[in-house]
Design a binder for these strands. Sequence first.
DNA 1: GAGTGGTCTAGACCACTGT
DNA 2: CAGTGGTCTAGACCACTCC
Lengths: 262, 262
Amino acid sequence: MAKAYERIADDLRGQIRTGQLQPGARLPAETKLVEQYKKSLPTIRQALSTLQAEGLIEKQHGRGNIVRKPRRLVERRNDRHQWEKDRAREPEPKRRETGATEHDTGLSVSDLVFNAEYRTTEAGPDLAQVFGVPEGTQLLERIFRTRYREEDAPFNVSHSYLLYDLAAKNPDLLDESYEPWPGGTQNQLHTVGVELDRVEERVTARPPTVEEIEDLGLTSGTAILVLRKVCIDINDRVVEVCDVTLPGDRTEMVFTTPLARW
Amino acid sequence: MAKAYERIADDLRGQIRTGQLQPGARLPAETKLVEQYKKSLPTIRQALSTLQAEGLIEKQHGRGNIVRKPRRLVERRNDRHQWEKDRAREPEPKRRETGATEHDTGLSVSDLVFNAEYRTTEAGPDLAQVFGVPEGTQLLERIFRTRYREEDAPFNVSHSYLLYDLAAKNPDLLDESYEPWPGGTQNQLHTVGVELDRVEERVTARPPTVEEIEDLGLTSGTAILVLRKVCIDINDRVVEVCDVTLPGDRTEMVFTTPLARW
DNA sequence: GAGTGGTCTAGACCACTGT
DNA sequence: CAGTGGTCTAGACCACTCC
């Protein structure tokens, strides 16, 4: 004998998958479902909350339970790194034209709103290990948020870390008011004599924390992609570590791996 | 005035984050929490279920609510593709030694259990578009599952698609009893005259469906990584499409992007 | 103001895990 | 068998959305 809330969830899930309930459509009111399935309200609500956790519906207080629409995906390609490296030594007017995110998304600079915040921190055990420096080493931490001009929530929050002593060679790099910096971090590193050899990106996924739900404007029933980007220069030194949080339901990361010919 | 279940969740979350409640520890019984917070059982349970959704605790019927332990990560590196290409033309004994997953994880063949299932399907709109063939074109679908010998659930389920006509050039490729095929798919493609030029991987994240919770042995409160790998040969033809489902709490994907020198 | 979901209570009974 | 979480009910009142 199947559990009541599971049967109800299965039934509604089926209606959504087969398209009987279209994306954007409102489900019957919870009180209607009570009559329909002859079960109590809390049972109905439990069924609905499992559908919410699966990302199939969205609960809107005062409006109803809505079938989720697939969201438009933002691509994030790994060829952005080479593209950014090529740009890093261009003259400023050219660098100013567009940034890496615009390169990925095909949007223009004016479609996106960019926000930066700088501060200094000390390396904890985790970052100290990645940089290969002692714990407590001073770091420049930079927090970036990118969002569409017409939307409230950013689709990208990243925390970038640079060795403070390295960044301080060019005092302009310590000043957040220069952001958005034309040419991005690779240009900034170029001004202190750094050339990148490779970028290593590590990706995992997990459910969002409450803070991330706030920050990224998620509804519950989504996952987040956690990306750690490590930039390594031609002397095999780690010169930047960047932790990026991306909403899983609107981000598609594209990694192209070229292979040597036989 | 904060909601009661939120205050309780915040309080418990704090205890977990600060380490007052260690991973693996049991929370007080729900009835104890009722006394402690002077709230009704359903309210307590609502607080606990938000913690479960965040992946912080795991509910074990009859035992208690347990603080989740971080899981051991399995790495999946993109240099596996070049590694596999290099192997593809080696003699069979060498190919038989280890596979790409063992290369990633540093485990030996005997630590892993591999399972394959072949069948034929027709290309739906999605796959037809990626392959650049008409809908209904016959495909060979191969379902692979990989798991640790000591564990029940696989950490990797993938659906690989090949053009049937291409695979049929070597009848051995149609027979699942040859799996695990030494040298992997790139060697198989080699036997029908295909050389890969590049691999394109697209990654998103989302909450698991009920089926995936079953298949991958997940507890609720985890996310899955969805990866689509597209293999493109030196004539710019799509020769394999592979959809991979990975549990987000035990997988770390590593992508290294080498950059050209200035 | 009508309709809808959100929060919370009090309590009954079932099912699983351990000893 | 004791202890624990899982399922379900019936009903009160609050908060948001939209007309």
